[in-house]
């Protein structure tokens, strides 16, 4: 996704990386048995974040953590109102999730509806012992009673702006920017 030049960089690569390391540390602090952890990234950018987090957890804690991806398109609550149907990505959960400590990983937490959709979808796969939410950025504007358990940073956004997280596999770089809202067709 090309980022507009008038975008303001909130976290550059080094800072973003540091934030991810910190999140990994928080995870290890709060989960006594990392063998029970499963990081599930929400498509699209949450997936790479989850993978990076897992790498960090392994580096800091010495245990390999499985990661999975979740596509929530079919669980959105606004299906009846959106325009052109979004392309559905794949959902891949490498292990049976019942009894595990699942941490949902997303790039930006906003209204909370994506997280709610992810909770609905996960419950169709099994019954985890615990589900927590880890998000890189919280931009506020909640419409549901959902809060992050692991938070990277908070940023305010003015009307007409949004937070854009970039990851190398999709955008070619690792960063967090404040950008003007793209004109939707």
């Amino acid at each position: 996704m090309p980022v507009a030049s008038e975008a303001e960089v909130l976290l550059d690569e080094e800072q973003t990386d540091a934030t991810l390391k910190d999140l990994a540390r928080q995870l290890l602090e709060r989960e006594p048995d990392p063998a029970e952890l499963l990081l599930v990234g929400i498509r699209r950018r949450g997936v790479e974040l989850a993978e990076r987090l897992a790498t960090e957890v392994e580096a800091q804690g010495g245990v390999a953590i499985p990661t999975g991806s979740l596509d929530i398109t079919l669980y959105r609550d606004d299906f009846g109102q959106i325009g052109p149907k979004p392309v559905i990505g794949s959902t891949e959960l490498p292990v049976e999730i019942t009894g595990l400590h699942v941490v949902i990983v997303d790039d930006v937490l906003h209204t909370g509806r994506t997280t709610r959709a992810a909770l609905n979808e996960l419950s169709d796969f099994g019954r985890p012992r615990k589900i927590e939410l880890c998000t890189l950025v919280d931009r506020g504007g909640r419409e549901l009673p959902i809060q992050p358990d692991y938070l990277g940073c908070r940023f305010e956004v003015a009307p007409g702006e949004e937070i854009a997280v970039s990851v190398p596999s999709i955008d070619g770089e690792l960063s967090v920017r404040r950008v003007p809202v793209e004109r939707k067709k």
Partner: peptide, 20 residues
């Protein structure tokens, strides 16, 4: 046909249902 691909996966799940 491309849209059908992810729906193939749903038929392999234990709960073969999405609320869409």
């Amino acid at each position: 046909l491309d849209t059908a691909e992810p729906f193939k996966e749903i038929s392999e799940r234990r709960i073969k249902k999405v609320p869409v």
